[in-house]
Simulated assay, not measured.
Amino acid sequence: MKYLFFMLFCLIFTFQANCQTKGQAVDKIIQRNYNIIECKVTKITDKEIEYLELGNTVIFTIETSKVAAIHFANGAKKEFASANVSEPVKEIESTNRPSPSIKQQEQVTAKSNVIAVLPVVFVNTSTLQKSSDLSKFAQNDLYSKLMDKSSNIFPLTVQDTRVTNSLLRKANIDYNNIDEIPIEELRSILGVDHIIAGKVSYTTRTIVSNISNSSTNVSSHGNNGVKVNNSNGSFSEDETKYDYIVYFDMYRNNDKIYSKTREPMLSFKDSWMDSMQYLLKRSPVYTK
Score class of each variant (00 low, 15 high):
1 M>V: 09
1 M>H: 09
3 Y>E: 15
5 F>R: 11
8 L>P: 08
8 L>M: 12
11 L>V: 06
13 F>H: 09
15 F>W: 09
16 Q>G: 03
17 A>Q: 06
17 A>P: 01
18 N>Y: 14
18 N>E: 11
21 T>L: 11
26 V>N: 04
26 V>G: 00
32 R>S: 02
32 R>W: 08
33 N>M: 04
38 E>I: 07
38 E>Y: 15
40 K>R: 12
41 V>Y: 08
41 V>H: 04
42 T>H: 05
46 D>W: 11
48 E>K: 13
48 E>M: 12
52 L>V: 01
53 E>R: 12
53 E>H: 10
57 T>M: 09
62 I>E: 01
63 E>P: 07
63 E>F: 15
65 S>D: 11
69 A>E: 06
69 A>M: 08
72 F>Q: 00
74 N>Y: 10
77 K>L: 06
78 K>A: 06
81 A>G: 06
83 A>V: 13
83 A>M: 13
84 N>T: 05
86 S>V: 10
87 E>Y: 13
87 E>M: 09
88 P>I: 03
89 V>N: 07
98 P>R: 03
106 E>S: 15
106 E>R: 15
112 S>R: 12
114 V>W: 14
114 V>T: 11
116 A>P: 07
118 L>M: 06
120 V>M: 02
121 V>H: 03
121 V>N: 01
123 V>T: 10
124 N>H: 11
126 S>P: 05
127 T>C: 02
129 Q>V: 06
131 S>V: 05
133 D>I: 14
134 L>M: 13
136 K>R: 12
137 F>L: 13
139 Q>H: 03
141 D>W: 13
143 Y>A: 07
147 M>A: 10
149 K>P: 08
149 K>S: 14
153 I>W: 06
158 V>M: 09
158 V>N: 08
159 Q>D: 07
160 D>F: 13
162 R>E: 05
163 V>K: 14
165 N>F: 14
167 L>N: 02
167 L>R: 11
168 L>S: 01
170 K>R: 12
171 A>C: 03
176 N>F: 10
178 I>S: 03
178 I>E: 00
180 E>K: 15
180 E>Q: 14
182 P>G: 00
183 I>K: 03
183 I>G: 05
183 I>M: 06
185 E>P: 05
187 R>T: 01
188 S>I: 00
190 L>R: 03
192 V>E: 00
201 S>N: 15
205 R>L: 07
220 S>R: 15
220 S>H: 15
221 H>N: 11
221 H>W: 08
224 N>I: 05
229 N>K: 11
230 N>I: 03
231 S>N: 11
232 N>Q: 08
232 N>F: 14
232 N>R: 07
235 F>Q: 03
236 S>C: 04
236 S>L: 02
240 T>L: 08
240 T>S: 04
244 Y>R: 02
246 V>S: 04
248 F>N: 00
248 F>K: 02
249 D>E: 07
250 M>L: 12
251 Y>G: 01
252 R>T: 02
256 K>F: 08
259 S>Q: 04
260 K>R: 12
261 T>S: 04
264 P>Y: 12
265 M>P: 14
268 F>S: 14
269 K>E: 13
271 S>A: 06
273 M>K: 15
274 D>R: 13
278 Y>C: 04
281 K>I: 05
284 P>T: 00
287 T>K: 15
